[in-house]
Design a protein around this nucleic acid. Structure first.
Length: 580
RNA sequence: GCGCUCGUAGUGAAGUUGGCCUAUCACGCCUCCCUGUCACGGAGGAGAUCGCCGGUUCGAAUCCGGUCGAGCGCGCCA
């Protein structure tokens, strides 16, 4: 007998068919039993009459999530018995015979209940959690997204190459996962943080365009938008590219297609803006601004050049954001935002509200008429608005107001979930100031090309070094960094130079990047590329705010797989063989 | 490593200014009844040393200290 799916039943009224799946629910009327059978396509109602004594007896013993097979005749339901809530609601299967393929204990969580178990239990019983329609949907959609990506990359003549998982420890960047070598005592492999060096070597190897949906491994603490341990990147590299714009234009259509056709969202703008890093920090206080709303940071330092107000007088930078309808905020809510500001390093949070043409504020009395007028004019504040100030070092002001900008947008629900706002942040500083070690260090990865090449590397003072820009770019989607890329440094002399500027000698560079340096001496083409964090991008496209919601088997916040109990101890024999 | 929040039957919640708490409700589970339900219905029942340890008190789910675990954030993530 042909086994069919629940979705096919409506098309075969009158036929005798076979179905298999899980018991979603059992409604036992004493003399008549209904079973909702669930398969991956949906639900179908089985009817078991007492005339079929054996099947009826089996049906009486069924419980939720038993795995069963049923044979029977498909019958159309009478009009008054149609169930509009399920796809197959116009038909039902009158069962002749029933078989229990497997029993199920009472489930520790209820996957089909409105009330969702806490995440720890959901992860422990992920195989049950995955039965939820939402999780089924996520896994299916993720596969579809991968398919869209692959077909785009193939159309653009990128070659998919898989690179080693057993790789080498990289000196810069995140903490590595190390794997002790059995055959070489004392030596270690490392899981790749990214296929960075391999893909550059592919360029030297004459592969014109490479891509890979690559597993990447980093041993750093997770966040809501960052998985622990492993994640996937759409990793790509193109040879004979000397300008990052070529890479950005290559990927614009794909990301737009994923936003619209795939995720069914509206683009804020067809044109994807390129925003220099310095401008992003200045206008949004962030290098990953959410452009779905305005509320830009407004420069007011000059307005208060001669102010008598102590807090502003001593500040290096004064900026403000204008919050529409800020007057509706209660004192308690403002206190809450003040706490957030303090947590980002602010001393407090000064503000001015406008009501009936008047400026109302705890600090108004310290400000002159001219200052108040200038603030209103520069911020464009109207009745009902509230201006929030940041006054501190420039970096602190940007950080505080950047964070508040996002918090206010959350509060006033300005982040339209149906809109995707994309931008590229370009011209990142090559070096940045490391405040803990009080020295200049790499801002992003050391493999990108400094703008201006060898000339730029003649910088000697810290300020000159910090002014060097990298041909490095990030793509930002609704406030999430979804891609990072750069024009690579394929010139050995320049590579020595960028390390040399930080005081590393040639030997250091040769020790750490010998393979790449060696390769670059044999005719390396200029090349550029990027890598998209596809899990995070998928999360945003799906409208989720926790990346674990879109992944089959994520680890928890402590890096533990509570289902498999990894990490775990290994036996002594295994350790001995590895010399541990 | 640090900060904030949380931890009560199998699950989700209420109770948290100490005492009517012998801990409440819903879902689930068990038994019985029920021939058209589809969130089936009805009757009954079991199930919680309130994360753990210690303290304060005549009395602790509730207060205090510690500890473990979780979530979020900071650090970190070239």
């Amino acid at each position: 007998m042909k086994r069919i799916l629940s979705s096919e039943v409506a098309g075969v009224v009158g036929q005798t068919i076979s179905l298999a799946g899980w018991v979603q629910s059992r409604r036992d009327h004493g003399g008549l039993i209904f079973i909702d059978l669930r398969d991956h396509k949906g639900l179908i109602q089985l009817v078991i009459n007492p005339e079929q004594a054996e099947a009826f007896s089996i049906a009486e013993g069924l419980r939720d999530e038993f795995v069963i097979k049923a044979n029977g005749e498909v019958k159309a339901r009478a009009p008054e018995l149609v169930n509009p809530n399920i796809e197959s609601g116009t038909v039902e299967v009158v069962v002749d015979s029933l078989e229990v393929l497997n029993r199920a204990d009472t489930l520790p969580i209820q996957p089909f209940s409105e009330q969702q178990a806490n995440e720890e239990l959901r992860l422990k019983y992920r195989y049950l959690d995955l039965r939820r329609p939402k999780m089924q949907h996520m896994l299916k959609r993720r596969a579809e997204m991968f398919s869209v990506i692959r077909s785009y990359m193939e159309t653009q003549e990128f070659t998919e190459v898989t690179t080693p998982i057993l790789a080498n420890s990289s000196p810069e960047g995140a903490r590595d996962f190390l794997i002790p070598s059995r055959m070489h005592e004392g030596k270690f492999y490392a899981l790749p943080q990214a296929p960075q060096q391999f893909k550059q070597l592919l360029m030297v190897g004459g592969i014109p365009r490479y891509y890979q949906l690559a597993a990447c491994f980093r041993d750093e603490d997770p966040r809501a938008d960052r998985l622990y341990g492993e994640f996937y990147q759409l990793d790509a590299e193109m040879s004979f590219v000397e300008d990052g714009e070529e890479v950005r234009q290559m990927f614009d259509p794909l990301i737009k297609q994923l936003s619209t056709d795939f995720a069914d969202k509206k683009l804020l703008s067809e044109d994807i803006p390129r925003i220099p890093y310095a401008e992003a920090m200045d206008k949004y206080g962030s290098d990953k601004p959410d452009l779905r709303f305005g509320m830009e940071l407004i420069e007011l330092t000059n307005v208060f050049a001669d102010t008598e107000f102590g807090v502003f007088k001593s500040a290096e930078t004064i900026k403000a954001i204008c919050v529409k309808d800020g007057l509706s905020l209660s004192r308690k809510q403002i206190d809450g935002f003040t706490e957030i500001a303090k947590s980002e390093g602010a001393g407090g949070l000064a503000y001015i509200s406008y009501e009936n043409g008047e400026a109302k504020s705890p600090i108004a009395k310290f400000l002159s008429e001219a200052e108040l007028a200038a603030v209103k004019e520069k911020t464009g504040a109207e009745d009902g608005d509230t201006i929030f100030f940041g006054a501190d070092k420039r970096s602190v002001v940007n950080k505080v107001l950047g964070r508040l900008r996002s918090e206010f947008a959350d509060h006033f629900q300005l982040k339209d979930p149906n809109v995707i706002a994309l931008c590229w942040i370009v011209d990142f500083p090559f070096y940045e100031w490391d405040d803990t070690r009080k020295k200049v260090d790499f801002g992003h990865n050391p493999f990108s090309m400094p703008k201006g090449g060898v000339e730029a590397l003649k910088a000697t003072t810290d300020d000159e070094k910090l002014a060097i820009l990298a041909d490095q770019y990030d793509m930002v989607m609704n406030g999430y960094e979804i891609c990072s890329g750069g024009v690579r440094n394929h010139n050995p002399e320049v590579l020595y130079g960028v390390f040399g500027l930080l005081g590393y000698d040639k030997k250091y560079v040769e020790d750490k990047f010998g393979a790449m340096l060696g390769a670059f001496k044999f005719g390396a083409p200029p090349h550029a590329g990027c890598a998209f964090g596809v899990d995070r991008m998928f999360m945003e496209l799906m409208g989720e705010n926790n990346i674990r919601e879109v992944i089959a088997f994520p680890k928890n916040g402590s890096g533990v797989d509570v289902m498999m109990n990894s990490p775990s101890f290994v036996d002594d024999a295994q350790k001995k063989e590895l010399g541990l």
